[in-house]
Design a binder for these strands. Structure first.
Lengths: 350, 350
DNA sequence: TTTAGCACTCCAGAAGGACGAGTGCTAAAT
DNA sequence: ATTTAGCACTCGTCCTTCTGGAGTGCTAAA
């Protein structure tokens, strides 16, 4: 893909103009750009070449050209200049990050909302599920004679709890025994390792309180499952409708439905290593995203977990601006979680 | 508002036809209904009367009539027949409720989604904040020398926790002392009663560990605050676009934006006593809802709290069907929470 | 009080046409 | 060899016009 310098400039001008206006770009408009010293006819010729290379497209014979996915890809890879964040923007992001936010969930909600406001595109965010999480310790706290609290802490430092009421009373000694039994039998095990077999053995050992074992362990299983389970949240869906390409309901509706559908995290790929990933048009797997672009940044949640935050928009999105903002935010999130600036470190609740 | 029997039947026929088709209804269409033995001219006369009473409107001279808000109101109050749920529908709702759902949040998410799917309208749900919540007990669990878990349980049986890491080590005895101090000083107090004054006294009493007091207490304050704070969630926004009245973006966009805006619970009124409430068109306070109707049902979360779940749609919504489904679901939720069918009673996490 | 008939209103959708932006090609110019 | 000017052609957009039909209100008869 060797392009003359002029063709590159033309391609870039077309893409940037189209990004801004969403209107096909004609040869005349490009010729009028300052810094373009050739005539529109020359540009027409070059445009024809660019089209032959698959970098541009014509909506119809006598409209201007619009970039193809391939064109955007080239732009993103080679032509795009880095966007500098304005002071305002960094302030906005910092402010969002520095809200006293306690829970992972809330932080991500907030982050998603900020991204959406900042970019005027719908945003999504998800945290990658953890694998092979195990329970590190159980604590049982007696509340009343017939109620106690289970506290489960995982090896990833997540702590969760549940209040349990019982039909019958319980002694402190029983609880103590149960506690020890749980901690010796069920700690350090992954989901798969907690077998019915093991349960039976433990229940046998628990004597009278055998029913409680399954109560507590099934709570632990819930916790482990919920940690492996990834959830997606979206924000700012309504921004979609502000875009000229989604003025017609036929286009907007399927995409909107897709984005607001049951949050199946599997639909969003989690980039393993790249901190920033851009999927343009047909590069997306999901049909509903075939004519949209997705830009996403991943960040470190600590404990080996990663999260992803990104935006969805028309292929003509302002990649430069958006990548800049996203990566700045993602870095902020990484710092927030990874380095334990959160009061109390990397723990989280829910 | 005394209407002849025939006029009532005509009004009802018009409203039900309009609910179904979203098209203005003409006199001929009504006359053709089985059970209407009079001619279209007669019906025209009656329709003119109904219009004069403000129950019907004309979009323009030669379209049929459409119901006015006042017309809908009359319909809802007097004319509407109770809708029977089909077996399918009840099964669907029951199934949604009987999923093993642990956390209040997830239950409500799920309920909102089910309502939206069941009605094909966007749904919202919110739980009323609690007032005057107090901490019932603190537990501090030592994890490592420089880390411990705070467990806070409120008088409303909500239990939350947080992992705290310390820059320096800590002895079991210190933690024990702290625990006792917290439980004697800060339990049974509402947010307002936890004064800086009190904090100072406690810090003084804590000696060396005085810094920890504020850590733990501020966590407790966060918990109490989050319980007083109401949140709204929405689901199925995309359904809006399926409706003929929101085919034009100009109509859909403001409403969609409004619904997906920052979740300010204040925007949704929580009906105090009515289990079911219907707001038709201009009866809504919010401008964005002026030509929509809101149907909501409230349910008991237990511990004196109430939640609300509802749908938003065009004024021509099928009130009969929707109220039936909502109230069935709300009853289910009440049972679920109020009677403690949730494993472990009324506790919840997050 | 109800009905049939009729003139009138007004929207929706089709059809036609002018406009204009943009193209590709050719031939001249550099 | 590349660039430019000129020109005919294409094709979507916008505007106008027109027509059909659904629905109304009114009047007069049943």
């Amino acid at each position: 893909m060797n392009l003359s310098e002029r063709k590159k400039r033309i391609l870039r001008a077309i893409i940037e103009s189209y990004i801004e206006t969403a209107e096909p770009v004609g040869s005349k408009a490009i010729a009028d750009c300052i810094g373009m010293e050739v005539s529109s006819a020359t540009i027409r010729n070059d445009m024809a070449d660019l089209e032959a290379m698959g970098l541009l497209e014509k909506p119809h014979t006598s409209a201007g050209r619009i970039p193809s996915s391939k064109g955007y890809r080239l732009y993103v890879n080679e032509l795009m200049e880095e966007h500098k964040l304005s002071l305002q923007e960094t302030q906005r992001i910092n402010q969002a990050l520095h809200l006293k936010m306690q829970e992972l969930d809330r932080v991500l909600d907030q982050a998603g909302r900020v991204v959406s406001q900042l970019t005027n595109y719908p945003s999504f965010s998800l945290s990658s599920g953890m694998e092979r999480v195990t329970v590190r310790r159980f604590d049982l706290l007696m509340v009343e004679l017939n109620a106690f609290i289970i506290v489960v802490m995982t090896d990833t430092n997540v702590v969760r709890n549940r209040l349990i009421r019982l039909p019958s009373d319980l002694t402190q000694a029983q609880l103590q025994m149960l506690n020890t039994l749980l901690n010796t039998t069920f700690t350090g095990l992954t989901l798969e390792e907690i077998t019915p077999e093991l349960m039976r053995v433990a229940q046998h050992a628990a004597g009278e309180a055998y029913g409680l074992i399954s109560l507590v362990v099934s709570f632990a299983i819930e916790v482990l499952e919920s940690l492996e389970h990834r959830t997606v949240r979206t924000a700012g869906l309504a921004h979609l409708l502000e875009l000229p390409e989604y003025r017609s309901l036929e286009r907007a509706q399927p995409l909107l439905s897709y984005l607001s559908e049951e949050n199946d995290a599997a639909r969003f790929p989690v980039p393993k290593d790249d901190p920033m990933r851009i999927l343009i048009g047909p590069e997306n797997v999901a049909d509903a995203l075939k004519d949209t672009s997705v830009v996403m940044a991943s960040y470190d949640i600590g404990e080996g977990m990663r999260g992803v935050i990104g935006v969805v928009g028309p292929t003509r999105m302002d990649y430069a601006k958006i990548t800049a903002r996203l990566s700045y935010l993602a870095e902020g999130l990484s710092k927030l979680f990874g380095q334990g600036q959160l009061p109390g470190g990397k723990d989280e609740e829910t």
